[in-house]
Amino acid sequence: MKHLLLKLEPLIWLLFGQGILLGTVLLTGWVLVVGLAIPLGIVPADALSYERAQMLGSHIIGRVILLGLIVLPLWKGAHHMRHIFLDFGGAKRDVLVAPLLYLLAASGSVLAVVAIVRI
């Protein structure tokens, strides 16, 4: 397991790095509008009515952005959670915790692809 983790480290780091960089870039607008502006009524709710959401989400560019919005934050999150765990003295259990966290991110990523195909 340790060996496999080491092998995958560059890939994980790439996803993690993009999670911070592109993930942050994408998430800001999403959280602003979907998480705050629409629920608070600043933007009318029909901006993301089912029809319009379908239209945006089924466009190829929309799909790519949605994929990024899910996958990148997941890897950023998983990797940082691993760091937190290590920073609080979890080095001995890293060999258990790290695969679990990455598995979580990986499953989320697979589900994301399925979800996006389903739109």
Binding site: G23, L69, L72, P73, L74, H80, M81, G108, A112, A115
Partner: peptide, 14 residues
């Protein structure tokens, strides 16, 4: 610690 936020956000979007 923002890792938690990102994980949750990822799953919320999912």
């Amino acid at each position: 610690l923002t890792g938690i936020l990102y994980l949750l956000l990822g799953f919320l979007v999912l």
